[in-house]
Design a protein around this nucleic acid. Sequence first.
DNA 1: TCTTTTTGACACAGTGGTGTCCCATTATGA
DNA 2: TCATAATGGGACACCACTGTGTCAAAAAGA
Lengths: 192, 192
Amino acid sequence: MTSTENPRAGVRARTRGAILRAAATVLAHDRNAPLSAVAEAAEVGRSTLHRYFPDREVLLAATYQEALSEIGRVMDEAEVEKGSALEAMRRVVAAHVEVGDWVVFAFGDTANEVFDDAPAATDPEPDLLTNLVRRGQEEGVFDPEADPAWVVQVLWALVFTGLERAERGQMPRHAVAPTVVRTLERGICAPG
Amino acid sequence: MTSTENPRAGVRARTRGAILRAAATVLAHDRNAPLSAVAEAAEVGRSTLHRYFPDREVLLAATYQEALSEIGRVMDEAEVEKGSALEAMRRVVAAHVEVGDWVVFAFGDTANEVFDDAPAATDPEPDLLTNLVRRGQEEGVFDPEADPAWVVQVLWALVFTGLERAERGQMPRHAVAPTVVRTLERGICAPG
DNA sequence: TCTTTTTGACACAGTGGTGTCCCATTATGA
DNA sequence: TCATAATGGGACACCACTGTGTCAAAAAGA
């Protein structure tokens, strides 16, 4: 704060953002990657990284928050509450694929420490989705016998699988969302 | 080898097996868990662990081989080639859930080093399953437009998800296989 | 231009996991 | 009982990562 405005805050915000994006990308692939790898990916010195995020833990938490914020943004754009549950679900899948790195980082590791510490408090995502599933069940389009939490987890799992496949070049990126949606809606069996 | 038979080999085989089982369980949860944790889980001194597996890398490789062997065993029992593809697929899912820890260890991490080094050479699993899927497509029960590799990966992903849920107490263990099968076959939509 | 901020390179010590070795103790089988 | 095999614990050096600090150079704004 050099003056009443935020004059030089633009610079700081930009590097901060670069670090967070790099952290999401790198740590999504390997949660235990050294911070030097994150700094390198962000094209920033390790000193600078520590200047912005003193701890590894602090960086993790900040990246997690940023991920939640990014996901929240695309979820807002997806307008989960609008239209039929089926259409909404399709938009949700597309939205998740769109911000793949953030999704993988935020929900990607089974032994998620950050998730355990400050769980659903700052994370409206699960409720939004389980509500969507419930709505779909009431509309009669989703399997009424399925546990909504299970359905949500399946959605995440399929999005992960699709993103992973895309990254390995086993599937074009634009095919991920449609494929996931198709599998979600019909399973793996023939139409008949 | 004290004599022509394998006299004291029984002892060694038992501890070796205990270490491998412990490694699968512990490392399935956290790929970067310290070897001391594996030793502790195996109820064995860290020295003993290093006596059997000098390197971490060696332990990883051995555990991976053991996992393939275990999975191969239950896959044999599942008789993938017999009966309708649909029935076979159900048996395959049940088999995978049965040896959950091994499955999670062997295919659980996205950045799998062991898998990259010695890939499909010693692992007949993927081919077995893609062949099953292809057979199902020819029989007209599986979606003919779906990439078999995608279907196989979806199967794994759902098994993972189910196992994860069971472990967290969010789903009874006996419900995993049926739930996965149901979701695989029909997706998340209502029967109508 | 001049001042202030921001940065990167380097050095440093602390830490936790690793791999090795040795030795006393225990278990196994003859 | 006795010899041998197997084990556990401790000590040790090693290494990668971490977190801190310093300092000169580069960048940004007045």
